[in-house]
């Protein structure tokens, strides 16, 4: 197991190098962080030149990439171009927020999707099953930003009509968030809508997947054996069928979780959350190459890591698989 993990991690290093080089080239050639400054009438050309020199903006791409690699290792991913601010502390703060968001979303997704998927499979072709199918397709089809906006409107209307603030529609915390329990509650109130918005597509997709997996398992021979042994139906479904049906879903969830890191842009923008997704968009429009690279590195590592987690989890759940 350990050698397996180490080997996998080693394989990922060349992947990271190649992808980082490609992204760097792409970003560096298509964006100009000094664009806004240059549009200023009567701009001080000497200052522009100074910034360019400091950030090696006038050098060829390969050399700039080399500087970046150096900065990444020795200077915690370096500094921003405008303002020379260290990148890593900012990014870690953003990462914390995004982590809260996606962990909550993933947990919610798994709980709901598994419940819905299992029940739909066990009660195939029932009204529940049909209505869940319809809802799933709706959930897959609804654009995230539209859903976000609708939720915001609904809860603002509720607040205006009845004076009850159930959930907040923007930001991570109140202006005065308070401490202790009060802080926790208002944080939850701020996160519920974004988490739900983020989770909707996943819930729809995962529940279909769980349903299909469950259906496949329910018709297996060993389920017939379990029934023939005289086990009560619930035990057959939960202990025997569910356990097996869960395996492919867990693999999917682990891989999906890794990709979620880059996928929160829309949700964070709509709800005004200071997370990784927004950080990336702001950096992209501002041409902050180093920030984009740092972001890329973090998300790449997350993806690689969670792919690995997926394999390890699979190894644990399914005794037929041996990792070596």
């Amino acid at each position: 197991m350990v050698t397996y993990i180490i080997r996998r991690l080693l394989y990922s290093i060349p992947v990271l190098f190649v992808s980082s080089f490609l992204i760097f080239t792409f970003v560096a050639t298509t964006t100009d962080p000094l664009e806004a400054a240059k549009m200023q009438p009567n701009v001080n050309k000497a200052a522009i030149a100074l910034v360019q020199k400091e950030n090696h903006l006038d050098k060829p791409i390969i050399e700039r990439y080399g500087y970046w690699v150096q900065d990444a290792f020795t200077h915690d991913f370096g500094k921003t171009i405008l303002g020379s601010r260290p990148i890593l502390p900012d990014m870690l703060n953003r990462l914390k927020v995004t982590l809260q968001l996606i962990i909550a979303a993933e947990v919610l997704t798994l709980l709901l999707a598994i419940a819905v998927g299992v029940y739909s499979a066990v009660r195939q072709y029932s009204i529940f099953d049909y209505s869940m199918t319809t809802l799933s397709f709706l959930g897959l089809a609804i654009p995230v930003f539209w859903l976000g906006l609708i939720l915001q409107i609904i809860f603002v209307n509720i607040f205006n009509k009845w004076g009850v603030r159930i959930f907040y529609t923007s930001g991570l915390d109140n202006v005065d968030p308070g401490t202790g329990l009060h802080f926790l509650i208002q944080r939850i109130q701020h996160l519920v809508l974004p988490v739900f918005t983020l989770a909707t597509i996943s819930i729809a997709g995962y529940s279909r997947f769980m349903r299909a997996s469950m259906l496949e398992v329910i018709n297996a021979d060993y389920i017939r054996t379990a029934r023939a042994k005289g086990l009560i139906e619930r035990r057959v479904v939960l202990k025997h069928a569910f356990r097996n049906a869960l395996i492919p879903l867990m693999t999917l969830a682990a891989i999906d979780f890794g990709t979620l890191f880059g996928g929160t842009v829309i949700t964070e923008t709509v709800y005004g959350l200071p997370g990784m997704g927004r950080y990336f968009i702001d950096a992209l429009s501002g041409g902050e190459t180093y920030v984009i690279m740092a972001w890329l590195m973090v998300t790449s590592v997350m993806v690689v890591f969670f792919n690995l987690v997926a394999d390890v989890v699979l190894g644990f759940l399914d005794p037929r698989i041996r990792l070596d």
Binding site: D221, R224, T225, A226, A228, K229, G230, H240, D318, P319
Partner: peptide, 24 residues
């Protein structure tokens, strides 16, 4: 009927590979 199955009346199935739960 469940109380009978596996108790006073039991079945041995055809294919033991698929008739046993692989993860238990």
């Amino acid at each position: 009927l469940r109380r009978v199955r596996g108790n006073s009346m039991a079945i041995v199935f055809q294919d033991p590979m698929t008739s046993l739960n692989p993860v238990l």
